[in-house]
Amino acid sequence: MPEIARTETMLTLGPVFFHWSPDRLLDFYRRIADEAPVERVHVGEVVCGKRMPFSDPAWPAAIERLERGGKQVVLSTLAAPATVRERKSLEDICGDERLVEINDVSGLPSRSGKAFVTGPFINVYNEASAKFLIKLGAQTICPPVELSFAAAGAMSVKCPEAEFEIFAFGRLPLALSGRCYHARIHGLHKDSCQFTCERDPDGLAVDTLDDQQFLAINGVQTLSNQVQAFCPAPDALASKGIRRLRLSPQTCDMVEVARIYRRLADGREEPEDARFALSCLDLPGTLVDGCAHARPGWQVIASP
């Protein structure tokens, strides 16, 4: 695999997990294309195949706009494909010449031999599994969000032939189900869900009986209520050879999020200043970073 010339940390905008309208998606990506200092942008539906007929028409224009803005576009794929239509769509995307993000093993047969990214829904926990996937074509590996920075760093050190990417910002994707919780809470079934998930563009907050903020639902997906804000110092990333930070879209000003992380990665802003700047944005939850530190994910540890 060719050595990548740049050594500084690159920023990746992850796929939108939520059911945004095509207009909202297009507006969002237009602004990202023009203003966000990110090298790579993921597009495509990851959470629910039932949303694809709505969002599919937005992608060609979004991709065109992003590529015109100098972004590398990655096509993200479904995390739990099930129906014949979803599986066919997955196979089609895997045939694309662009980089593809694999989020379920179902995509590996049609992508093996061609470069791909593994997303946080693929269980890569150790160097042997990483090497197995690299042999098949994995170029960038974004491990599951529960894996600590130290563990991801240890993998990165042992697998210099791939880039490792840390889920740095956004509500943490914690679980997927066969059951749709938006449908369930509205007394509906998944098969006739009425797409109530579109009402919650950051997910729907799930609090405990004692009003502790805890989780959020997004159709079949469960996320953290709190927002991951892992802000490593550039040296910490460099020492483990971690090349990329992933920023996961929420409705807050993602251009500003990208600017903050760009300054952080360039060493122009201290981690605590970056965290403060993030905390000033209109976020759906408080900032946490426990997972990255091998602690309960809801905790705030801060540093390195």
């Binding site: 995390a79 739990a80 829904f121 269980n123 599951p144 969000v145 529960e146 943490l172 914690l174 679980a175 997927l176 189900s177 066969g178 059951r179 805890f214 989780l215 469960t222 953290s224 426990g290 997972c291 091998a294 602690r295 309960p296 994910g297 809801w298």
Partner: peptide, 17 residues
């Protein structure tokens, strides 16, 4: 209820998964 092997809820709450 969640797809097994792809659920990090316990990790988020307790640090053990």
């Amino acid at each position: 209820v969640m797809i097994e092997g792809r659920c990090y809820l316990s990790s988020y709450a307790t640090g053990k998964s």
